[in-house]
């Protein structure tokens, strides 16, 4: 049997939360830049999910008799060095970016929240150790560490996948394309959870000092319950802001890894890899380099705008 006061608090907070989210949404759509960011972002998500189905071409389909064509009605961005429709390749790149962005964000936020909450709630030497770990990882140049992890993890992960495929008979696991994704996910998630953990810890520590938590604690509500029911929902706003802003840098990092030739392997589509593949002909066919580059920049910029907008919407007091 649970004590009544806890329900009171919770219900009161539910109401407040609802109005908080409603306000936030109204503030978000009122901001023009945030709306622009949101629209571009939604367009990107739509293209990534449905674009390949709508395109008349297959992003892997080569036409060796239509190599390196300039832009035309049939191929708005022309074709690449293997006669593949470049617009379709760009859309496939969007799918890769979305896939990596969403998965890594989930992994980062998951790890970050778990570790941050643990540190804040348990305190003491565990807190010190966890936060020191965060500091250590943050002192690595992120991208350099991601490059290194990517280069070292590839073989162990492949071995693991091969073993898994043999044990379970799931042949689809033993497929280079998935392995590339898993390696990229792992590398990016491992370097990126630190800031979220720090943020969550800070939020929880400041919330814990507030009355409704103190009273809940005083009435003997169990720790995990407090964390899940009260602390996390209240720390959610800043985490969403951080995750949105982080989404842009994850997409950027994936493209950078692929640009160096260690991320998504051919014939998979990644904007970074497209830039590398075509850098040799930047004089002759500049659009093959410019289009993936500009698309990538627009998505990152949309994510940043959206992050800024969300920040303003969820923390109105932070605005100048």
């Amino acid at each position: 049997m649970e004590p009544t006061p806890q329900f009171d608090h919770s219900e009161k907070w539910e109401i407040k939360t609802r109005s908080l989210w409603g306000d936030a949404f109204r503030r978000l759509v009122r901001s023009k830049t945030a709306l622009l960011g949101l629209s571009i972002f939604l367009l990107f998500v739509f293209a990534a999910i449905f674009g390949l189905a709508l395109s008349p071409y297959d992003y892997l389909r080569q036409d060796l008799y239509a190599l390196e064509q300039g832009p035309s009605l049939a191929h708005p961005f022309g074709t690449d060095e293997l006669g593949r429709d470049f617009l379709t390749r760009i859309i496939a790149g969007a799918r890769t970016a979305l896939f990596v962005g969403v998965f890594v964000t989930i992994l980062q936020v998951g790890c970050g929240v778990l570790i941050g909450a643990t540190a804040a709630y348990l305190g003491g030497w565990i807190d010190t150790l966890l936060m020191w770990t965060v500091d250590t990882i943050l002192s690595f140049p992120h991208f350099l560490l991601a490059v290194f992890i990517n280069a070292t993890l590839e073989n162990p992960i492949e071995d693991a996948m091969v073993t898994l495929a043999e044990r379970t008979g799931w042949q689809w696991v033993n497929n280079t394309v998935y392995i590339d994704y898993v390696v990229v996910f792992g590398a990016l998630a491992m370097v990126g959870w630190g800031p979220i953990a720090r943020l969550v810890r800070g939020q929880i520590l400041s919330l814990r000092a507030q009355d409704f938590i103190l009273s809940a604690e005083a009435t003997g509500v169990q720790t995990p319950r407090i964390v899940v029911r009260h602390l996390l929902p209240n720390a959610l706003g800043p985490v969403i802001v951080a995750a949105t802003a982080g989404f842009g840098s994850i997409v950027l990092a994936e493209s950078s890894l692929s640009f160096l030739g260690i991320g998504i392997q051919p014939p998979g589509a990644s904007w970074g890899a497209m830039i590398t593949e075509n850098l040799g002909v930047w004089r002759e066919r500049p659009h093959l380099v410019a289009v993936p580059g500009i698309t990538l920049s627009i998505i990152v910029f949309a994510a940043n705008f959206l992050g800024d907008g969300l920040n303003d919407a969820l923390n109105p007091q932070s605005r100048h």
């Binding site: 830039i275 380099v289 410019a290 580059g293 990538l296 920049s297 990152v300 940043n304 800024d308």
Partner: peptide, 16 residues
């Protein structure tokens, strides 16, 4: 805001 979204490996070919 616009500029900080552009990675160097995109800037390089664009500058070029």
């Amino acid at each position: 805001v616009l500029g900080s979204s552009i990675p160097v490996f995109v800037l390089a070919p664009i500058f070029m």
